[in-house]
Amino acid sequence: MISYIARRLLQSALILVGISLVTFVLLYLLPADPARQIAGRSATAETVESIRQQLGLNLPFYQQYLRYATGLLHGDFGRSYLQKTEVVELIASRLPASLLLMAGAITCELILGIAMGLVSALRRGSGLDNGLMLLSFVGVSAPQFVIGILMLYVFSVQLGWFPIGGYGTFAHLVLPSLTLGVLGAGWYARMMRSSMIDVLRQDFIRTAHSKGLGRATVIFRHALPNAILPVIAMIGIDIGMFMSGIVVVESVFGWPGIGQLAWQAIQRVDIPIIMGVTLVSALAIVVGNLMADLIAPMIDPRIKLR
């Protein structure tokens, strides 16, 4: 276990280095000029050049990246060009809100997806099965901003059950979590249905029935732990999808997380913030995948970590 974790951590470090390099290259190639953005449209060429020198933007690419990478090794993500604040402080102030939203979304997608997939597998071929699979297809296909706007219109404007936007209470969390969770729930429902149907055909399930075990015991004690493994493996990957979807959902619901921070930084070409949010998102994906790999053997002891 220790050697496996050490190997995965080394792989994760290399992945993060690669992501930082690729992102830095893409931002370096942008036609927008951060120095001009900071100085303003009316600034003189001398002022723009002075800002460029202060920020080190006049240096060759490899020197800029080495300066940034050296700062990362010391925990320095740089300083926001426009907000004049350390990027670490900005992300730290926004990260709890995003983690809370992610936890709510994962909870929603697991509850909805597993329940829908389980019911569909047990009622295979019925009208209920077809209806749930159609619903899951709609959830997978619909854009998240459309789902978010519809939920706001129905549950906030028409019914008045939840606030239109904001942050701070459980009521504020419900609609953004459902909006993010609907996509994952659709995937999980389809995956859970296929996995459950396959497990129910296995010999050990027939053996459990022949021993006289009740239907509920066979399903929830024997079939479900085996069928749920593909879903657990997908959670780590889903964190990456959440990080991309959070930008849209946080903007729709006015949620003060790193997605909203990233969107504001992109509009202003605030490169240190964009780099910081990208690396934090990549780290979340890596950690999520590692946790999924470590949890799987706890559910099914037949899985060995190598």
Rank of each mutant, 00 (worst) to 15 (best):
Y4C: 02
R7D: 05
S12Y: 08
L16G: 00
L16I: 02
V17F: 13
L26N: 07
L27C: 04
L27V: 02
Y28N: 14
P31M: 11
A32Q: 13
D33F: 06
D33G: 11
R36T: 11
Q37T: 03
I38Q: 07
A39R: 05
G40H: 01
T44M: 03
A45R: 13
E46A: 15
T47Q: 15
E49L: 12
S50F: 01
S50C: 02
R52L: 06
Q53A: 15
N58S: 14
L59V: 00
L59T: 01
Q63G: 11
R67S: 13
A69I: 14
T70V: 13
G75F: 05
G75P: 05
D76W: 05
D76Q: 04
F77H: 02
Y81G: 03
Y81F: 08
Q83G: 02
T85E: 10
E86C: 04
V88F: 10
L90E: 11
I91N: 06
L95M: 12
L101S: 03
G104E: 10
A105H: 07
L110V: 06
G113S: 06
G113M: 09
I114K: 08
S120F: 06
R123W: 07
G127S: 11
L128R: 00
D129T: 00
G131P: 00
L135P: 00
F137E: 10
V138K: 01
V138H: 01
V138L: 12
S141C: 09
Q144R: 13
V146W: 13
G148H: 04
L150S: 05
M151W: 08
M151Q: 12
Y153K: 15
V154F: 15
W161P: 03
F162L: 04
F162K: 07
P163F: 04
G166N: 05
G168Y: 11
G168P: 09
T169C: 12
F170G: 09
F170M: 15
A171K: 14
L175V: 05
V182C: 11
L183F: 14
G184H: 09
W187I: 15
A189W: 03
M191E: 08
S195M: 02
S195T: 01
M196C: 03
I205S: 12
I205P: 07
A208G: 05
S210P: 00
S210F: 00
K211T: 04
L213Q: 10
L213V: 10
F220K: 01
A227V: 03
I228F: 07
P230N: 09
I232P: 02
A233V: 09
D238F: 08
D238I: 05
G240T: 10
M243Y: 06
V247D: 01
V247T: 03
P256R: 13
I258V: 13
I258A: 06
G259M: 01
L261W: 01
A262W: 01
Q264L: 06
Q264T: 05
A265E: 10
A265T: 03
A265K: 09
R268I: 08
R268H: 10
D270L: 13
D270I: 10
I274G: 07
M275Q: 14
L279C: 07
A282C: 02
A282Y: 00
I285G: 07
I285Y: 09
I285H: 09
L290D: 06
M291C: 13
L294C: 09
K304I: 04
K304Q: 10
